[in-house]
Write a protein that binds this DNA or RNA. Structure first.
Lengths: 186, 186
DNA sequence: AAGCGCATGTAAAAGGTTACATGATTAC
DNA sequence: GTAATCATGTAACCTTTTACATGCGCTT
């Protein structure tokens, strides 16, 4: 776990900060959002929740339901909020894998604008670097006549280009929002 | 590890089948190709190599170099080729994560055309399903005014659409290749 | 002489999934 | 009756990374 990088605990805590939920709810939300990095298992979610509870970062409320099993709704405590606050302003030194970046986007609400921008720009730099590597690889493979060998590189290039387009337009959008909120008070 | 799914052993074995390499070489090749799923560590590569050697699926050749440390070049044995052969014709029941799919592409050479097509189509079905889920999620989030909450879903949608475009064009290409090789002998 | 690229290796720790157990209600 | 959704939980297991150790030769 590289220093400054998001882990699963942060993800759960960040999601609970957006909205109090049960483990089952969290799983449902992640199924829709965390697709690129894979949906985590219940085993992981529940034990993370217990660990957070044990560390006093969240509290539980047992909610009996009619016609359905009892739910356990978790909410972030003040200690938990403080932990997120620290994360929010912390400098980004992550080795940003796709997983870690996806988590960052899911809990984007907990970051300050500057931290979010830093994350996006860092990801942008990394994707550009990878694209360069992939372009070199395809150039080498073009010499050979084996078309199958190029599949992985082409796949990577397609994803990299799509991601870069998204990152650029998203960064633009965020910059315009800052400009607007600066212009309005003026 | 779902049955029928590719694991790291298969990846290494498949890469060695394409070309005999050292652990260091494998790492270099994967750095260029396996970007979306993350480049594996040396620790993983070397221990997998030792395990394959122990199971008689590969052999080593110690290659001393002048001016550089000695390399250990691994090659696939007949037993290893047989294992790949079985994998090649095996029906695909994988829970195809991005990781497993990327591995499949890297060793695409070892698959029969039908198996490769099955993998690509299976992935296509899964991505379409995920896209549907993501579209529903964005529809729900559009109601709210929180723009940050939509980031993860939009990101996923962008990647899903790019991947689908690639999958469709790649499947087309492969189909045309089969047609050509059927037409020629006729 | 310090640092980097090459090259291999191991053990401990972290991370995560699978498989199981439980149990109620609804829909076919 | 049997499958599906809802809902939680534990332990064993697998996978993978991290952090270390080693050592040569080239460059600054």
């Amino acid at each position: 776990m590289p220093r400054g990088s998001l882990n699963f605990r942060h993800l759960i805590l960040g999601m609970l900060a957006q909205q109090s939920m049960s483990g089952y709810d969290i799983r449902g939300a992640l199924e829709g959002l965390s697709w690129p990095s894979g949906t985590p298992s219940f085993g992981n979610i529940y034990s993370t929740l217990h660990a957070l509870l044990n560390d006093g970062l969240v509290t539980v409320e047992v909610v009996p339901q009619q016609d359905k099993p009892t739910r356990k709704v978790y909410s972030v405590t003040k200690a938990g909020e403080q932990m997120l606050q620290e994360l929010s302003t912390q400098s980004v030194t992550s080795g940003a894998s796709l997983k870690s970046f996806t988590m960052c986007l899911i809990v984007a609400d907990v970051f300050s604008r500057d931290t979010l921008i830093a994350y996006l720009q860092q990801r942008r730099d990394q994707v550009i670097a990878h694209r360069t590597t992939l372009e070199e690889t395809t150039r080498t493979l073009d010499q050979e006549k084996a078309p199958r060998r190029r599949l992985a590189a082409e796949y990577g290039l397609t994803l990299a280009n799509a991601e870069l387009t998204w990152l650029d337009s998203t960064l633009d959008r965020i910059y315009q929002q800052s400009r607007r909120s600066i212009e309005l008070p003026a």
